[in-house]
Simulated assay, not measured.
Amino acid sequence: MFISGNYSSDNYNSDNLMSDYVEFLQSLLLIVSNFFLLPAVYLALKCKYLGEAFIYFLTMFCSSFYHLCDNDHMRYCIINYEVLQFCDFYSAILTLWVTAILMSDIPYEWRSVLHLTGSLFFAGLLRSKTTGAISFVVPAVCSLVLLGLSWVYQCYCMRIMPSSLSYSNLIPGAVLGVIGAVMFVSQVTIFGHLYGYTHSGWHICMSLSISFLLPKTLLNQYHCPQYFDTLDILPTSKFDI
């Protein structure tokens, strides 16, 4: 049964029925709103950001199954609840971090260093403070600092405009990000009783924000040379054996 309970006239009045349907709707929104990440997955694949596309898909997958496990009306847990919770929070943090690295357009050789460093640091932080606000504030601050330093260096030191600074995409992406951040904060402060709606709104705003903020081109895009072109020892003709 997706909706738990027996809704007979003996057990429930109209107010209880309405309350149950509202809770069911909120649970459904929490799951369905994760699919707004699909445009970001598609755009990342189209731009050949394969690692980022995988992280976005993983975030959508983990968050959907976490919220499916974290409710009373459609409860279904594919693995342990605590593991799902960690995967949901961790993948969301990684989504923020890899997007910031991509937007910063740093040299390709340094991206893997930042990916690994951030992954290890944020995993340890989240493990120690799984549900604490600091687990999300610190990655957000680190991402903003990385973006700011990179853009300042490119604009004032290298005298070039960062490829991700396209105002037609940056402005709507930033506005959606701010709205999403406000919803995220409000769900644990003044609108706690509307958690299902505010958290779903956060899912939608942040997912669409990523879709806008993804740079279409990068100055430091890696171009791998053909393998055989780099080996001088290979025969150049059928007689050179």
Rank of each mutant, 00 (worst) to 15 (best):
residue 87 C to L: 14
residue 146 L to E: 07
residue 14 S to E: 15
residue 120 L to G: 12
residue 142 C to P: 08
residue 118 G to H: 02
residue 9 S to F: 02
residue 25 L to Y: 15
residue 178 V to I: 15
residue 150 S to A: 11
residue 222 Y to M: 04
residue 92 A to R: 06
residue 60 M to P: 08
residue 122 F to K: 10
residue 74 M to F: 07
residue 179 I to C: 13
residue 180 G to M: 09
residue 43 L to A: 05
residue 160 I to F: 06
residue 102 L to K: 06
residue 83 V to P: 04
residue 79 I to A: 00
residue 12 Y to V: 00
residue 129 K to R: 11
residue 108 Y to K: 08
residue 183 M to R: 06
residue 191 F to I: 07
residue 115 H to D: 15
residue 166 S to Q: 11
residue 212 F to I: 06
residue 23 E to H: 15
residue 208 L to N: 01
residue 118 G to E: 10
residue 224 C to P: 09
residue 107 P to N: 04
residue 203 H to K: 08
residue 90 Y to N: 07
residue 202 W to A: 06
residue 51 G to V: 10
residue 85 Q to S: 12
residue 56 Y to Q: 15
residue 12 Y to D: 12
residue 155 C to L: 11
residue 96 L to H: 00
residue 233 I to N: 12
residue 202 W to F: 10
residue 17 L to N: 08
residue 139 P to S: 10
residue 239 F to P: 12
residue 191 F to L: 11
residue 113 V to R: 12
residue 223 H to S: 13
residue 76 Y to C: 10
residue 142 C to R: 05
residue 197 Y to K: 00
residue 142 C to Y: 04
residue 213 L to S: 09
residue 81 Y to H: 14
residue 204 I to L: 10
residue 62 C to S: 14
residue 198 T to Q: 12
residue 191 F to C: 10
residue 194 L to K: 11
residue 164 S to R: 02
residue 69 C to W: 14
residue 172 P to T: 09
residue 67 H to E: 11
residue 109 E to M: 01
residue 127 R to C: 05
residue 120 L to I: 12
residue 159 R to I: 00
residue 161 M to W: 14
residue 90 Y to D: 05
residue 29 L to E: 01
residue 53 A to N: 08
residue 241 I to L: 03
residue 103 M to E: 08
residue 225 P to S: 09
residue 163 S to C: 10
residue 91 S to D: 05
residue 74 M to H: 12
residue 217 T to Y: 07
residue 159 R to P: 00
residue 196 G to A: 04
residue 3 I to V: 13
residue 194 L to P: 08
residue 203 H to R: 04
residue 29 L to H: 03
residue 183 M to K: 04
residue 196 G to L: 07
residue 101 I to M: 01
residue 190 I to A: 11
residue 12 Y to S: 13
residue 32 V to L: 12
residue 82 E to V: 00
residue 50 L to I: 14
residue 200 S to V: 05
residue 132 G to C: 02
residue 219 L to D: 14
residue 26 Q to V: 00
residue 118 G to P: 13
residue 195 Y to E: 11
residue 186 S to W: 09
residue 60 M to T: 11
residue 121 F to A: 15
residue 45 L to D: 07
residue 42 Y to N: 04
residue 132 G to L: 01
residue 180 G to E: 13
residue 230 T to Y: 01
residue 147 L to K: 06
residue 46 K to L: 11
residue 211 S to H: 08
residue 54 F to H: 09
residue 65 F to N: 12
residue 241 I to V: 05
residue 219 L to A: 04
residue 39 P to F: 03
residue 2 F to W: 13
residue 61 F to C: 12
residue 157 C to P: 15
